[in-house]
């Protein structure tokens, strides 16, 4: 375990005196909320990976004789306005929503780690300029900036990813920088420096692994908001475009038929909620078990 960020609340003493002795996975499984989150997450990952294979119908095959049908044994979640099987579309859409979230977060993680490390290691004018940029970006609500960027660039998958990355990376860079600054004060780093090891080797061998794992906790904590943001932007028509099945985009279609076919709403809504819930539970559990210091 590496050191905590600068702004840390007092450490919970009882937690320190009785450290959970087992491995991370064992500790996570013992955490009741994490167990529920893990089950949900595994279900969702399975859905994203195998959903398209499990779909009983072609998710994009319209059947105009069977429009807006109520749920039945043939169509478990009913059919949408073009007679497409809603259940198949939910199964098919998972990988778009969840995959996009993972893609965006990986980009942000990389950018945040690189920029934060550069700022934290270089200090001086580079640090000041980078952190000013971060401050400015963080002064705009992420979702507002994302809406504006994707609105100006035009809706679509690539622009959605770009907009989210631009409006979201700043916080990660700031956190990575503070972790790097913390790590630089650590006795083992100072010892390594005194032993004549170059900064490059110290960074790669001793600083970055710890910083990356701390940043990963933030990624997990943020996964829920990211899924919500992607589904929300697609819901607004700014993300994945129809006819491709994506949970947020499906929600905005089913909203139009909420009086005629109210059952259509729950199909994409429940998995979005489940994904956000699972991500939040997992993130909290991971934070609790790995880093009691940031436990608020």
């Amino acid at each position: 375990m590496t050191s905590e960020p600068i702004t840390q609340p007092p450490i919970n003493v009882t937690r320190r005196l009785n450290p959970p002795p087992r491995s991370l996975s064992a500790r996570l499984v013992r955490h009741p909320e994490a167990r529920f989150g893990l089950v949900c997450a595994l279900l969702l990952v399975g859905l994203a990976l195998f959903g398209p294979l499990l779909a009983p119908y072609d998710p994009n095959q319209p059947d105009f004789r069977a429009k807006l049908e109520a749920p039945s044994t043939e169509h478990w979640l009913g059919t949408d306005q073009s007679g497409r099987d809603q259940f198949s579309r939910v199964l098919d859409g998972g990988q778009r929503t969840l995959g996009t979230a993972l893609l965006v977060l990986s980009c942000i993680f990389g950018i945040g780690l690189v920029i934060g490390t550069i700022a934290g290691m270089s200090g001086g004018i580079v640090d000041i300029v980078l952190m000013r940029l971060v401050d400015i970006l963080m002064a705009l609500p992420s979702i507002v900036l994302a809406i504006a960027i994707v609105g100006v660039l035009g809706p679509g998958f690539e622009n959605l990813v770009l907009a989210l990355v631009i409006s979201w990376w700043a916080y990660y860079a700031r956190m990575a920088r503070s972790y790097v600054l913390n790590a630089r004060q650590r006795p083992d780093i100072i010892a390594a420096r005194l032993a004549g090891i170059g900064w490059g080797r110290i960074m790669v061998g001793h600083v970055l692994p710890g910083v990356a794992s701390q940043l990963l906790i933030i990624v997990t904590l943020d996964l829920g908001s990211m899924i919500a943001a992607i589904a929300g932007l697609s819901f607004l028509g700014l993300g994945v475009q129809p006819p491709a099945a994506e949970w947020g985009a499906m929600l905005s279609e089913s909203r139009l038929y909420v009086t005629l076919a109210p059952w259509l709403l729950l199909g994409p809504l429940v998995p979005i909620f489940g994904a956000v819930l699972a991500a939040n539970l997992l993130g909290n559990a991971l934070r609790d078990t790995l880093d009691p210091g940031v436990n608020r």
């Binding site: 589904a231 819930l277 939040n280």
Partner: peptide
């Protein structure tokens, strides 16, 4: 815990479906 995981637009759609329409 449920509330934190319920983004505003999902809450809005649920309200639309179960309160306004119903």
């Amino acid at each position: 815990q449920v509330g934190v995981s319920l983004p505003a637009f999902l809450a809005g759609l649920l309200a639309l479906r179960y309160i306004v329409v119903e």
